[in-house]
Design a protein around this nucleic acid. Structure first.
Lengths: 350, 350
DNA sequence: TTGAAAGCGCTAACAA
DNA sequence: TTGTTAGCGCTTTCAA
């Protein structure tokens, strides 16, 4: 232990850290021997091992992660970039990544990317690349995520997560398109002439959910109404619900996610339009409250956590020099509940 | 650049990394000079600076974070420990920590602690302490978080976040107790004889929400019913709602959070009990869907994100050698909506 | 302003 | 089994 100079602050206490040499001295062995008992890399006599262990204990020694990282060149941390960290789908995906990473001995850092503008991306990247990371997972759920993928240095092992296949880095995918198509087909089968679409902010020109909706309508040559854009907040869905309450041509609505669907339902009901009697509404994701909603939501279940876990698995493969499948896909299950029914006679409120 | 031996894998490409010496050689300067332009620590002639910058560009050089960390001893990462990462309150708190940390140049790692058992704690701690971290924030919302606080080495700068003051490390607090008391007082003022409490899993013997409920009842000498324990899932609230639907003595329920309140309401309605006509229900947190629920939820708003931000602020103070206020408090606002009313005549379904 | 030399705390390679 | 010697890639003295 070196000498403490002034009053102890956190910085000083770090400076005063016990190092491997202190342990070696106290135990009366050489530094590499301490290292050997630390890593278990080579045999150490029971006698010395015991002395080293006791010295570690008394000095309360913890090896310096920085020094280890420098010599081992295998950082045990991966970085996650996301345009949001707390919203349902994002948070669940991150949970899946973290759980799987932790099981494999990796710590995960999360960095929210405020937007797709270059300075946001650069800020996030330079912050994170200033750390030692083994690789990165990018949540490509929004334009910010897409921009991160574009800016990430090519030599950083990385996997992206999204709902629609694309070129570039390896991806973990959910087949949103098929799920959307099924949901729309369900509505069509119920007898609706066409299905309106309230979409959540898209990551690029068109996302899987929207593509699926469109192709399902095209398949039966149903009219394709203009897309209605919502934000991420349920309240934006509510405003849209109020708007479409007055439109007799709207009998079925396919929403970009469950929270927006809940908002839309609320907005419709605010205006005296009943769901599903007057208008059918479907969501997407199977949010934990979707089943509890009144009426319970017809939706497509997404397993975000396992999506995240798969993404980490692909990253791990990449780190081990393999070339992971770029298109691991999984089809979300459609769940029919009470928010959809055959079209009724719209009862438009005054 | 060193020589590549076999097929490039991620590990090899890491081994083959461009180092500061490569830049120095290409620019025709010494290594410290490169370091100087990198850090801006000392003056470098424009001529050499330019050459160095160009060399960095052509070689696509990025300094090794590990080497820097070793010599600078000031890790720019903080660790967050939490018993959950995706549930509303947790995710929002983490968001607040991350946003504030990022603004101050820190990356945040998140680690979920699976439970309060020693081996869970040790696993999480040893994983994270194997990284270079400047400090830690512990979400003490559950027994796992409480256990982390107990096990965390004393020499790691740390701040905990919870709803009830406690000794030990510095804390960021929300005054849940006062908010709970107000909520219960509101119910009492409406004319309810007593208020039942459905609590979420407590972090220790009693949490602020429960303490506040109890003291509000004690203050007016109202009978104190047994606490009803729920889990974290809305479905557990629903099961409880169904149970209490048959109890005529229950006219008002104070739930541990909004999601449980939504479940309770759903369970009551499943059984034909109306909210608030037959039973009043209040939640806690002001979840984004609380206002959208039918009936909209009376609740207490919690600003988890700012709570997280404050916690990071305290940690930063700690890192700078200051002694942060241990009890920063903030009183959640009570929001009266439609799920509460004067007691009516209970109409118990068969 | 610049370079040579030293050293951060650890592990790996090499002898003994 | 052990200790000695060399680094890992950077920043920081210290001279020049």
């Amino acid at each position: 232990m070196r000498i403490v100079r002034r009053t102890m602050s956190a910085v000083d206490s770090a400076r005063n850290k016990v190092v491997i040499g202190d342990v070696a001295r106290l135990a009366g062995v050489s530094v590499p021997t301490v290292s050997r008992v630390l890593t278990g890399a080579a045999k150490v006599s029971d006698d010395k091992r015991l002395r080293v262990e006791r010295a570690i204990e008394t000095l309360n020694y913890r090896p310096s992660a920085a020094a280890r990282a420098l010599v081992k060149r295998q950082p045990k941390m991966i970085a996650v970039f996301a345009g949001d960290t707390s919203r349902y789908g994002y948070a669940e995906t991150i949970r899946g990544i973290e759980e799987r990473a932790r099981a494999d001995g990796y710590v995960v850092s999360i960095t929210k990317v405020e937007g797709p503008a270059d300075d946001h991306i650069d800020a996030a990247l330079s912050l994170v690349l200033g750390q030692s990371i083994a690789g990165a997972v990018v949540l490509k759920f929004d334009p910010a995520g897409v921009a991160v993928v574009r800016h990430l240095p090519k030599d950083i092992p990385a996997v992206s997560i999204s709902g629609l296949p694309e070129q570039g880095m390896p991806q973990a995918l959910i087949d949103e398109e098929t799920a959307a198509r099924k949901l729309v087909a369900h509505l069509l089968a119920l007898g609706h002439r066409t299905i309106h679409h309230v979409r959540i902010p898209p990551s690029r020109a068109e996302d899987g959910r929207t593509t699926g909706w469109r192709s399902a309508l095209e398949a039966v040559e149903a009219p394709i109404p203009d897309v209605i854009d919502a934000g991420w907040e349920p309240s934006s869905g509510r405003a849209i619900g109020k708007e479409i309450a007055g439109r007799e041509d709207v009998t079925a609505v396919f929403c970009g996610n469950d929270e927006i669907a809940m908002g839309v339902i609320k907005g419709l009901e605010d205006s005296g339009v009943r769901v599903p009697e007057d208008v059918s509404v479907v969501g997407f994701d199977d949010h934990p409250l979707a089943e509890m909603w009144r009426p319970s939501l017809t939706t497509a279940r997404q397993d975000f956590a396992s999506l995240g876990a798969r993404a980490f698995g692909q990253l791990l493969a990449l780190l081990e020099g393999e070339t992971p499948e770029s298109l691991t896909s999984e089809e979300p299950a459609v769940i029919i509940r009470d928010s959809t029914s055959a079209p009724g006679v719209r009862r438009v409120s005054p």
